[in-house]
Amino acid sequence: MLVLLALAGCGKLQNDINVPLPTYNADLVVECYLEPGKVPSLAVTTSVPYLSAVLPQVPTDVTVTLTMPNGTQVRLPFNPNYKALVDTTSGVKFHSHIGTTPLVAKSGDVFKLDVVDTKGRHATATTTMLAPITIDSVNYKFNDKTGTERKAYFLTNFRDPPALDDCYRLQLHKGNPAKGALLKSPEVDMSVEDRLLNGQNITLGTSYRFYPGDTVTATLYHIERAFYRFRQSVRDARQANGNPFANPSAVYGNVEGGIGIFAVLSATTTQKILR
């Protein structure tokens, strides 16, 4: 019996295997988040065979045109900041193309994006800037513990507009914004829709995870359904790899002829120092 038990414990239950994958045809991957007051930029890469080299493939033959709400077409030149691909500290995002003048945008403005390369790949997308949603209040509450165990949860409250089909993304960053805290990974990053709470007050909370003295910045994005669905489908696709209980999921964006997402960020922020 002891021999059998010993045998049961021997050997690994996870092994490397060789998986011959068929030929894969790469698509253009477009990621563009416009922000009012900031110079428009975007990242154009291509998808790659899964087991190929790590770094993303950045095509150099891509022409990008941004169409403004008034119909003006603006070329975004190829001007990549390759350093951002390997920089793991600054929080600066990679862009392959970038404009020259800050964006002017207001609620309801429609923008269009046109991406084409010399191989005939052509991706297009359209997005609309949504009205920012005010954060009504933020609250926190500490638990009864002391020392390093004393932690608080954090609540963000806002009201959903009467019309259905609003989607939101809330980020909570910890630290001093003046020292670049808002460029780093957030403490909390969640997406919700108003399907079950249309027109009502919405409260989003966290677990006990903030300490006395923390500065918490809440950023509430009012996002398009396409952006919400893109994030959900990216999450589902990631979870399906390595989860025997999940069904493989396609990624849904708003980029026709390619993969990716095009959005205008509409955000409100508020800060709280936890005492």
């Binding site: 994958l21 068929p22 894969y24 790469a26 698509d27 991957v29 990621e31 988040y33 922000e35 990242a43 890469t45 291509t46 998808s47 790659v48 065979p49 899964y50 993303p56 951002a84 691909l85 390997v86 920089d87 793991t88 500290t89 600054s90 929080g91 995002k93 990679f94 980020q171 960053h173 808002l182 460029l183 780093k184 990974s185 957030p186 990053d189 950023t219 994005y221 990216v234 696709a237 990631r238 399906a240 790899n241 493989p248 990624v251 993969i259 960020l265």
Partner: peptide, 23 residues
């Protein structure tokens, strides 16, 4: 068969999210 990277909006992660998105 394939994968691509997502870097997301500013303030979401540092650089391109290291978790690949499977296709």
């Amino acid at each position: 068969l394939g994968r691509f990277g997502v870097q997301d909006i500013p303030g979401s992660s540092v650089g391109i999210d290291p978790r690949p998105v499977p296709i």
